[in-house]
Design a protein around this nucleic acid. Structure first.
Lengths: 347, 347
DNA sequence: TTGGCTATTGAAATCGATTTCAGTTGTTGC
DNA sequence: GCAACAACTGAAATCGATTTCAATAGCCAA
């Protein structure tokens, strides 16, 4: 254990602590000869500067808090990886705050900002509202958001065009011949949810198709919510032929419900999700979904946040609108003829 | 932003900083009336103690470093969740160190221990060797390990009986009538790898079957390694009928290779993995695997490490050997008759 | 009212670094 | 050899809390 302090090094090298500090921080105004002596002492004593003392004095912790709805969900894990890797390459560490999808826990973690455990915080969660996040910034904290757009000049954010996502998916389903397309939303008040719903409606409008409120239901962005939501939807609309789930997790729940109801995907019902989590490629039938550059969003935003914290100025490029891409797979590849849809015999 | 310091609170309440500190830390020797006054001042100023200063003085950071091979792999993510949740409930935070499967990065992160950024560290990675971890403890640091057993009385660890895992899997395959069973190892020097290999051999011995070195190959615990490993195995042993992959990720690689080679699972080849990652239930055919209580391992070990750090004594129960459970699914459910195996027509 | 004891309280040291400011050393030019 | 200036170096303040130790206040009995 490196128990030695800077004063020990100073004594050994026969200089003052100030000089040792200068050598450590390469401020460059130490004579070469002295520097050598100090470095040797550091080496010999295996000295490492105490980060806590350093933090206190410099008022920076070199740590970023990452509040994430559920670290186990691969969509989030991939974003977090992007954050961690970028942070690390910029000499920052990240403190993971798994909110377990609970707002109370998210708010709890805000104390890390307040007590200066972290220099800034990134929110990767649909739970916290924009308003609450803006309040933090107004209080003087550095925060950033992934997955949605926030209209505030001091909040960097990375997100995809959710309206476009909704529109792309539903237009695709319409092209496939579907007329009764359900939308399975996440939390009703999450931007992801209502923006995708907006896209859904826009696609219908463009195609001259009616909006049927019964075809909308909402879940919680989790598999179980998708499962229950589909059961409700199907109960109300026996004739629906396609489901657009606001994310892949819920689409998995739809698969489960379909299996129990002996409904074939995609023969009876087409399913499309969003996020392109890894599992979508492995499941049968493979799930059509929308790719979002998760790792990239995490990395870009982290770079931006750190830059902003260090320079204390809010550059021009405050947000990153990244491109999404519809991936058509088996779950929505069965062309359906209009007006002649019916349940074919299983198989 | 809570910019007020303890001295500001003290002034406002008309007391000394010592008294404020006593109120904050409920040391209980403050007169009720004074306490009320201080609490009101704290309230009014919206004061939060500065964690850095606190840490410096108390020499504890209330943070645990978690070095993980790859946070995006669901096996690790689930363990990390267990760690985070338990740590949080004990008032600790975790610093995630994604090593990207690189030993150099893992060693880099050790500096967090050395510079006192964290109070202790948990290793959730097959990369670091036992020797290196023991060296840290001998240096006086608090560390713990998940996923293997380390023979050192100051290192808490949580793990499953890997020999049993290997034996269970292979015995199962033998029961199914398989005679040419390949073992696809992870990193050759990881305990997970060679202990499972040991179980593999034990099962063969128990069944009176020969050990054939050509049936062993190794990957890297990742999908791509599993893919390449299987191609090599299959190249050498056209007649193999079962593959035991040291983890599920590699089993996914085997699936991929089989698909390309038009080999049917399980009709032509049975596949079994380890870890029971989520994807195994969704893939077709569902993958037989071995469940390890990942979340539980993370949580238990974290509790133990924190307890050890706080009491600075190494209690009786130093390690947690958790139960594993073979889950037989479709990928190994096709009974095979001895001596009459042949490639059936596809389908 | 006062002594003696305990319950509160405050001043100052401390944690381990960084940084300011002043003092010292070394160079250079004449 | 010496003044003038630049280059180094060190003493002490500082970051914002906790904690020790001594001092004060409050209380009760005599």
């Amino acid at each position: 254990m490196s128990d030695s302090k800077i004063i020990d090094v100073a004594k050994r090298a026969g200089v003052s602590v100030a000089t040792v500090s200068r050598v450590l921080n390469q401020s460059g105004l130490v004579r070469e000869k002295t520097k050598k002596r100090v470095q040797q002492a550091i080496e010999e004593m295996n000295y490492t500067p105490n980060a806590m003392a350093k933090n206190l004095r410099s008022k920076r912790t070199m740590k970023i808090g990452v509040v994430v709805a559920d670290i186990e969900v691969s969509y989030y894990a991939e974003i977090v990886k992007g954050i961690e890797n970028m942070a690390n390459s910029l000499d920052y560490n990240i403190i993971i705050c798994d909110a377990q999808n609970q707002k109370a826990k998210e708010l709890e973690y805000v104390s890390l900002l307040q007590n200066r455990t972290v220099d800034g915080m990134i929110f990767v969660t649909p739970v916290m509202t924009n308003k609450e996040i803006i309040a933090l910034v107004e209080d003087g904290y550095s925060v950033a958001v992934i997955g949605r757009f926030i209209e505030h000049e001091q909040i960097p954010c990375a997100f995809t065009d959710n309206v476009k996502i909704g529109k792309d998916v539903v237009s695709h389903l319409i092209e496939q011949g579907h007329e009764k397309i359900a939308f399975l939303s996440g939390y009703a008040d999450a931007t992801d949810s209502y923006e995708r719903l907006e896209g859904y409606m826009k696609a219908l409008r463009d195609a001259g198709m009616p909006f049927i409120p019964e075809l909308i239901d909402n879940g919680d962005f989790n598999e179980s919510g998708g499962y229950r939501g589909f059961l409700r939807l199907h109960g109300r609309n026996a004739d629906l032929t396609a489901v657009f789930a606001a994310n892949d997790e819920m689409a998995l729940g739809v698969y489960k419900a379909c299996k129990e109801l002996a409904i074939q995907v995609p023969d009876h019902i087409a399913v499309v999700g969003v996020d392109n989590i890894r599992i979508t490629r492995f499941i049968t039938p493979s799930l059509s979904t929308v790719e979002q550059p998760k790792y990239t969003m995490g990395a870009l935003l982290t770079e931006k946040l750190i830059d902003q914290m260090n320079n204390n100025e809010f550059g021009d490029k405050r947000y990153f609108k990244v491109e999404s891409k519809l991936l058509i797979r088996e779950s929505s590849s069965h062309l359906r003829e209009r007006q002649t849809q019916e349940r074919a015999e299983p198989g």
